[in-house]
Design a protein around this nucleic acid. Structure first.
Length: 646
RNA sequence: GCCAGUGUAGCUCAGUUGGCCAGAGCAGCUGAUUUGUAAUCAGCUGGUCGGGGGUUCGAAUCCCUCCACUGGCUCCA
């Protein structure tokens, strides 16, 4: 007998060799039907795998993240079975679960797969699911495994095998499909009910663009059709929040093939919104002791040779422009830091000047590969709410913490609650891609970790190998409508540029010292920030940001002069308002205004003129009755002051 | 940049066994209407069918090529 410990601390005895499924059945049939896998001593196991020694056990269901990922991993195998059945002779690379579903990377050989094939594959998967084939685990020697895949002519699995140790190798088989796989898997294919293959994509083998491109099929599955349907509805709804769609509908920004890809054109309403965000940041920065500076959009190549950016990115940048006579080379500004270093150097600095915080809404241009461009979130010309803090080494942590405060101020002012803070450190093995001494890196990484700890940030993840080439960073990531993560705010410690530019300050000891630089951009870029903001609020901007706050809707031309009067009073109070003076019916005017997401409608007819009031309607909510104009103005001002979230 | 897909009016979309002057709704303009909380009626304007080349008696439709966009991959100072 062996002792099995349950999550609540209870211990029960079972015969040696009992499986997690046996144990679950001994508790209840209902449990046995619901579970997908089990955590045995902290490792995720198949339910059918015999347990031979004392162990702690936790059953995993669809409600557990690990239960879901096991379910999706098994679904990837089911899809592979359907693909192999439909296209015999294809070869498989890896098929892992992802955040929402799974994929499998496949070398299709001469076969071509299209969207319509996905439906066929879904049907095939449903058919295979009905067969309710068990996932069978088999331990196999490395030699036998190699023989199996050599016979199959599968160089991909042989490549995987070459990195595995004998004695650690398992095969999983369901129906006619056998795969090299560590597992674990759900008991059988019959549990997989709601099936949707979402997209076909190319993916480089081993993620290296020098390698062959495999075909990646993405899918998502659920334990029942209802959950799949709900998920598909969610996706449809999310598409309506897409900033590219809303940006067009609300006339915020546009792109022009003639101007060039990745170069957004801000329309008046969008420019107004963007300007307001900029004012908001400018004010917060002035309060925090930042000093605004302005630098040009081009700079001599020498600047970037000094900064090291030329060496690192020169070949992959927009190529230099030249002066016609002398042939001097200038680059479009891809970042503001080197310019700010030169501003630092313009006058001798003393320790009394530090921290020196130079801020600029700097427009930069970067050559992004055409396939990377995406609405406003990834563009070739954008404006950073950039600043560089020149500080003494012992001030790094404090300044870093103040910047975290600023980022959190931005997020709370806009109601962003669902963000993660990502600490990006060096690759633990490959250190060749970084410049600067190990000593400085260690120091910088330590400062970030401490600042994050002391600020008590939640949702912190540490990513190795994600640091910039000159220093570690802390990024704030926010999701878009369909769950893609985008980096907004960023804070980076840099010991490198001060060296390269030979920045110094005179210390209390009357000797020269090297300052440390902190790069930071709470928004990241105005472009990306607006994009995420649009998706966050689905185009219903808070009162302080919305381009037009009030639409005045006279019921007929007869009330136009009263409407003009209302308009001028609103304008005198710095409220952004427009009149709809078309000779349309009020229902039409309301509908059109509702669609443009202007928050306040003031309806004016005979009653309002007689009572010297206005009838208030709130976008998305409805009639709020009549009020005096003074009352309306005060309410709006209040909402602007408080940055109220609706 | 790579893989796959898409590209018809300002917007959303019809239109392929290749064949009459390429259609609709919305938006816009003109007129009528003067309206009470999500679409008044009528008329009109508007398109090099993404660009270029080719096949054909004839191309939005078939082929080639370039461009842009979409979903991924790679990249992201």
């Amino acid at each position: 007998m062996m002792n099995i410990t349950f999550p609540d601390g209870a211990v029960r005895q079972y015969e040696q060799g009992s499986s997690a499924m046996d144990i679950a059945k001994s508790i209840s049939e209902g449990l046995a039907r619901r579970i997908l896998a089990a955590e045995v001593n902290g490792e995720i196991w198949d339910l059918s795998r015999p347990i031979n020694n004392d162990a702690s056990i936790k059953f995993l269901t669809w409600e557990d993240a690990n239960g879901k990922s096991t379910f999706w991993h098994s679904s990837a195998h089911l899809m592979a079975e359907a693909v192999e059945d439909t296209f015999p002779g294809v070869k498989f690379w890896v098929g892992p679960p992802v955040e929402k579903g799974f994929y499998y990377d496949i070398d299709l050989g001469d076969n071509v797969i299209t969207e319509t094939d996905l439906e066929k594959l879904e049907k095939k998967m449903a058919q295979l699911s009905k067969q309710n084939n068990p996932f069978v685990r088999k331990e196999i020697s490395k030699a036998d495994a190699i023989e199996y895949f050599e016979e199959k002519g599968d160089e991909y699995k042989l490549d995987l095998l070459s990195n595995l140790q004998d004695g650690n190798i398992t095969f999983y088989t369901q129906g006619n499909f056998t795969d090299l796989c560590r597992g674990p898997h759900i008991p059988s294919t019959g549990l997989i009910k709601g099936i949707k293959l979402t997209s076909i994509a190319g993916a480089y083998w081993k993620g290296d663009e020098k390698n062959k491109m495999l075909t990646r099929i993405y899918g998502v599955t659920f334990p029942n059709q209802k959950e799949l349907d709900e998920y598909l509805v969610f996706l449809e709804e999310a598409k309506k929040r897409d900033h590219r769609k809303i940006g067009k509908e609300l006339e915020l920004f546009t792109f022009s093939e003639k101007v060039g890809q990745g170069l957004p054109l801000w329309l008046p309403k969008g420019a107004m919104l963007r300007g307001r965000l900029q004012d908001f940041m400018q004010k917060a920065q002035l309060e925090a002791g930042y000093l605004p500076v302005v630098t040009p959009h081009i700079a001599s190549k020498n600047l970037y040779v000094t900064s090291g950016h030329y060496e690192k990115y020169g070949a992959d940048s927009f190529q230099p422009i030249k002066t016609p006579v002398e042939g001097e080379e200038f680059f479009l500004k891809p970042m503001n830091c080197p310019h700010h270093c030169e501003i630092y150097k313009a006058v001798p600095r003393s320790y009394k000047d530090l921290p020196l915080r130079l801020a600029e809404f700097g427009t930069v241009y970067r050559y992004e590969q055409s396939g990377e461009l995406h609405g406003l979130t990834r563009v070739r010309g954008f404006t950073q709410d950039d600043a560089h803090l020149f500080v003494m080494a012992e001030q790094v942590k404090d300044e870093f913490k103040k910047v975290i405060d600023l980022v959190l101020h931005v997020f709370s002012s806009l109601g962003f609650k669902d963000y993660t803070a990502q600490i990006s450190l060096r690759d633990q093995e490959d250190r060749t891609k970084y410049i600067g001494s190990d000593e400085n890196w260690d120091l910088a990484e330590k400062s970030i970790m401490e600042a994050v700890n002391e600020k008590g940030l939640e949702n912190v993840v540490i990513e190795y190998g994600e640091a910039a080439f000159y220093g570690p960073k802390l990024d704030f990531m926010v999701r878009d409508a369909i769950g893609r993560k985008w980096q907004l705010g960023t804070i980076q410690v840099d010991y490198n540029l001060p060296e390269r530019f030979d920045l110094t300050y005179i210390g209390e000891d009357n000797a020269k010292h090297r300052p440390v630089m902190i790069h930071r951009a709470p928004f990241g870029s105005l472009e990306r920030f607006v994009a995420v903001l649009i998706e966050h609020c689905a185009g219903k901007f808070p009162m302080w940001l919305v381009p037009v706050q009030v639409k005045i809707l006279p019921i007929s031309d007869k009330f136009l002069s009263y409407a003009e009067n209302v308009l001028s009073q609103l304008k005198n109070n710095d409220i952004r308002a427009e009149i709809d003076d078309r000779s349309e019916k009020i229902g039409k005017k309301i509908r059109d205004t509702e669609l443009t997401k202007i928050p306040i409608m003031l309806i004016i007819g005979e009653k309002e003129v007689n009572d010297e009031k206005v009838s208030v309607r709130r976008q998305g909510i409805g009639d709020e009755g009549s009020k005096t104009l003074a009352e309306v103005i005060e309410n709006i001002k209040e909402e602007v002051r408080n940055k109220t979230q609706i």
